[in-house]
Structures are given as C-alpha cells and as structure tokens.
Design a protein around this nucleic acid. Structure first.
Lengths: 106, 106
DNA sequence: TTCAATAGTTCGCTAGTCTTGAACCAATGA
DNA sequence: TCATTGGTTCAAGACTAGCGAACTATTGAA
C-alpha cells in the first residue's frame, strides 16, 4: 500500500525537527545536493549512492516530515524539491547558515 | 566515580553533532538561557525545572560532548559556559541563526 | 495484453539510544 | 561528624535507526 505523502504546513514546521533532520550526514548531503543542483531532483540522484534503498527512503521521509522537502510522484519516480521559500519565511536565514557551516566541513 | 568532564577541541566539533544537540527542546532552552543570562551559569539554573536530575545531567553531557558548553566543577556545583567564541570561529553565524529561529517559535 | 524493468515503499528484525528512578559521590556548612 | 546540596552513574523499559527482503506502481517493450 503506497500511502500518499504527508507534508506539514508552514505553521507546523518545528525548529527542533528541522535541526534533527539535518543532524544526519546523509540527510544533510541530500539537502545540499538539492540546493546546489537546483530543484527538482529525484530520490536516487540526490541521495548518497552507497546507502540501501530502504535507508534512503527513510531519510526522505524524515526530511519530508520535517518540512524541508516536498515529494511528488511522477511516474515511477519521486521528485523532491526543497521548500526553500516557505522555510525562509518561517525561519529567515536558518537554512543558509547551516549550509554555509556544512561547506566549511568539506 | 565522578569522571572528569571531556570537552572536544575546536577541530573535533562537528556540525551534525551540534545540530543534533540543539534538536531537543530542553537542550535548546539551556543554550538560550546561557546566552540570555550571560555565562556562566550552574546546571540547575539553566535547565528546565520540571525535568528529573538524571535527565538534565544527560542533556548537559550531550551539549558538552557536542562542544557547545564547557563545564567546570566549583565546589558542589557545576558551572557551565557557552563556547560561543570558539564555535563562532569554526562555524561563523551558525548559533546566532539558530537562536534567532528559536526566538521566532515563542 | 502480458511481462520485465525501474524506482521507491513497507515490513520485520537487530542493535543502539533516550528517559527515568534509584543509588551513589564529593564538597560544604552547621 | 554528619546532614545537605548539586550532580553523576547505573540499570531497565520504551523508542528509534539501519538494512535486507518482499512488495507496489508505473512504464515500455514484445
């Protein structure tokens, strides 16, 4: 049973949940790729390649439920887009600050 | 056996660990209080009151091992200070951005 | 229409982590 | 000396992450 994707509304997005979602190396990489590569992007393109499919799927679910990405089915694929605009309305400057810090880690 | 506190060096501080440490409501509150009240501050002052001692102690340990705070024993108390300067050297603007976002949640 | 390939989800298991009460410890002050 | 204060450590149950295996939905041949 493929359940429909659930996305929180802007008001329901919580800071703690966003920080938690980004506190994982793989998920942070997904968000960075979505930012750098220009949305939209399908799952297998954005996720670190070495990870099992089930794990990737889990990471996308965490990012989705945190409100960081929006997922839509397009045929056999799932297309993911960053919810940049919405998040920057709710928490201006937060995501850029985190991504900038991530760049410093490389 | 009271073990000595372990603090990571600046180089060892990881972005993911910081985000994880701050992805908890209680720990975020502790950091906010340390920021607002001006460091240093002892444990029982900074932590949310309703939490059991053991849980508070655990949260301080997470913050300490993430490199966010420095803890020192002073008599029967433990005095905690934010490692603001060091972290802003490693990740400029990160903590202020998160704290600003936290203010918007109130 | 049927069948295989593709892209991803869901299930079930193991291993690790969080929370908390209970027991403990070290410094202070009466 | 001994109770108090402020915090740590331990142990146990509840919860969560990672991953292989099984499954589902769509597409594109044959």
């Amino acid at each position: 049973m493929q359940r429909p994707f659930v996305h929180p509304t802007i008001e329901d997005i919580k800071l703690e949940t966003i920080l938690y979602a980004l506190s994982d190396r793989a998920r942070l990489e997904i968000v960075r790729k979505l930012t750098a590569g220009g949305c939209p992007m399908n799952c297998s393109t954005a996720a670190p390649v070495h990870l099992p499919k089930s794990t990737q799927s889990h990471h996308y679910q965490v990012l989705r439920e945190a409100g960081l990405i929006r997922s839509e089915r397009r045929g056999t694929e799932v297309v993911n887009t960053l919810r940049c605009t919405e998040i920057s309305e709710r928490f201006p400057g937060l995501i850029p600050a985190i991504l900038k810090a991530a760049d410093l880690c490389d």
